[in-house]
Design a protein around this nucleic acid. Sequence first.
DNA 1: CGCGATTTGTACGTATGTATT
DNA 2: TAATACATACGTACAAATCGC
Lengths: 237, 237
Amino acid sequence: MKNNKYMDIYNFLKELIVNKKIKPGEKIPSESQLTKKFNVSRNTVRRAITMLINEGLVNSIHGKGVFILENSSPSFSIGGLQSFEEASKKNNLKYKTIIHSFEIIKTDKNLAKKTTFPLNTKLYKIKRIRNIDNENIILDVNYFNYEIIKGLNKIIAKKSIYDYVENNLKLNIAGAKKVLSVEKIEACEKNLLDLDNNELVAIIKNFVYLDNGVLFEYTESKHRYDKFSFTSYVRRI
Amino acid sequence: MKNNKYMDIYNFLKELIVNKKIKPGEKIPSESQLTKKFNVSRNTVRRAITMLINEGLVNSIHGKGVFILENSSPSFSIGGLQSFEEASKKNNLKYKTIIHSFEIIKTDKNLAKKTTFPLNTKLYKIKRIRNIDNENIILDVNYFNYEIIKGLNKIIAKKSIYDYVENNLKLNIAGAKKVLSVEKIEACEKNLLDLDNNELVAIIKNFVYLDNGVLFEYTESKHRYDKFSFTSYVRRI
DNA sequence: CGCGATTTGTACGTATGTATT
DNA sequence: TAATACATACGTACAAATCGC
């Protein structure tokens, strides 16, 4: 972890909030109190507080203080960007990944539109089935730019592609745009998931970028509707 | 709109990005260039850039510059907190609201758990059907704290409750935690929406806070699955 | 390979404005 | 009115990453 002063203050405050040492509706220590306590400048304190505001844990009121929001639980991070492997480990679930298909294709007109890759871009197309506690819960359809994610193969795909991208290729992932919708599953994919007689799945479409702004991955993550939820915080204004 | 210096710089940069005057993968002007152009301190420039980073429009790389992400369209704000009225107006849709029921209740054990209001809290419970282009698309089930949202009635509910809360009661809304899931609609609500023979709906559960951190509203917004999508941006780390 | 120029990252200190109590 | 608390903004300094020569 980073050992910055603003992170110290951030972690200090976050611990107070998530462990309810200060209750929802109450105020965190004032900026001047925190500058004294941590022996830092006010800018540094404000930076830590700004992070908490962006996370939706607190809200500042001019002239009054910074208030803890009710329901400020750590579940806020569920919507976060993490790989299947990371998420499953964190929640101590028995999981495995089944590679259903692995091919190299080029974008045609339809696929270019859907993925926003240019026409005729060479892509890895991978279908992976995510099995949790012996049920096929998630179908991931990944498209990786062939020229960027060099040397991808089935063995890597069985483990963690993100791990390969970051630790072997030394590429840095900036973040992802996610679009969420509910759709009927395609006929050819129906038998890959353990669905009841309902054919609807929740689909998260991920557009994932490197730190230089280049799109390197488009993925559709198709979830059994009853095994899926997504959390976020939205500020007014 | 606020007339702050950092907002000027933010708006200047955002205009460049959304109108593709600088293309994805390219850099925005450096911090020192912007301080000269706007005649401000570096802190002020950095604040504007930080906002763009948080929105997922750009990504900064130490020592290199701030890069525009591909797909940096303004659709990023779809997930934003806005009332049905605001959203429909913005998109120029023909809409109307039908009040299906309006009652005053108290939380029992189940409802307290679901809404996170304390047991025996007095609430307004309102069911409203949102009709867009002559189809019943959304069913909103609102629970408002009776002691906070004083004087609510059917006429207000037919228009905009948020408008009443902010302009008449002079309360300030901080933001909302949103939890998204897909569920079977309740039998008694099935005929309120124009569903096909599928009984699944996308449900957004909203926990809405005032600026002092107090929960004043819990709402379940039930959407016809085929008329619904949700966008957000998630950063790595 | 090193060195300087550029660019972002962290941090400090100060001043002034505005809202709340 | 005075004290407190957050908001905006300026200026400075040094660190760390990147790039070109």
